[in-house]
Amino acid sequence: MSRLELSPNFSDPDAFYAALTEAHRERSEADSERINARLILLLANHIGEQQVLEEALSIAAADSEQPR
């Protein structure tokens, strides 16, 4: 049973960030939301394990509840 990897695991985080921001450049808010939704579903499919996905969702949802 896998656990969610929480340690830094990017081979090149700056390159990924640059590609992500470029994918959103000059897009409408609705287009950006569609890109994010598709990206989430593609990565969730790649992970595949329900328990890992639920752990990630729980962590992401808890973080969004924190005051800013």
Rank of each mutant, 00 (worst) to 15 (best):
M1G: 05
M1T: 03
M1C: 05
M1L: 08
M1I: 03
S2N: 13
S2C: 11
S2Q: 13
L4D: 00
E5W: 03
E5H: 01
E5V: 10
L6Q: 01
S7T: 05
P8T: 02
P8E: 01
N9L: 09
N9S: 12
N9T: 15
F10W: 08
S11Q: 05
D12R: 04
P13T: 05
P13M: 01
P13I: 01
P13A: 10
P13C: 02
D14Q: 14
D14G: 15
A15H: 12
F16H: 14
F16P: 15
Y17L: 13
Y17C: 14
A19R: 13
L20C: 14
L20F: 14
L20E: 12
T21V: 14
T21M: 12
A23V: 15
A23G: 13
A23N: 14
H24A: 10
H24G: 08
H24M: 09
H24D: 08
R25Y: 02
R25H: 05
R25A: 03
E26G: 14
E26R: 11
E26I: 10
R27W: 00
S28N: 00
S28M: 03
S28G: 00
E29Y: 11
A30K: 08
A30D: 12
D31K: 04
S32L: 03
S32I: 02
E33F: 13
E33P: 15
E33L: 07
E33I: 04
R34E: 04
R34L: 03
A37W: 05
A37N: 15
A37G: 14
A37F: 07
R38L: 06
R38G: 04
R38V: 03
R38P: 08
I40E: 00
I40M: 05
I40A: 05
L41H: 12
L41C: 12
L43Y: 14
A44Y: 08
A44H: 10
N45G: 12
N45E: 08
N45D: 12
N45M: 10
H46E: 06
H46K: 03
I47N: 07
I47K: 03
G48Q: 06
Q50A: 15
Q50D: 15
Q51W: 05
Q51D: 06
Q51P: 01
Q51Y: 10
V52A: 04
L53T: 04
L53Y: 00
E54Y: 11
E54K: 08
E54T: 09
E54N: 05
E54S: 07
E55D: 00
E55P: 06
E55K: 02
E55Q: 04
A56T: 11
A56C: 11
A56Q: 09
L57K: 08
L57E: 11
L57H: 10
L57F: 14
L57Y: 13
S58D: 13
S58A: 14
S58V: 06
I59P: 01
I59D: 09
I59L: 12
I59W: 07
I59C: 13
A60D: 01
A60S: 00
A62V: 02
A62N: 00
A62E: 00
D63S: 12
D63V: 12
S64D: 06
E65N: 06
Q66M: 04
Q66H: 02
P67K: 01
R68F: 02
R68T: 01
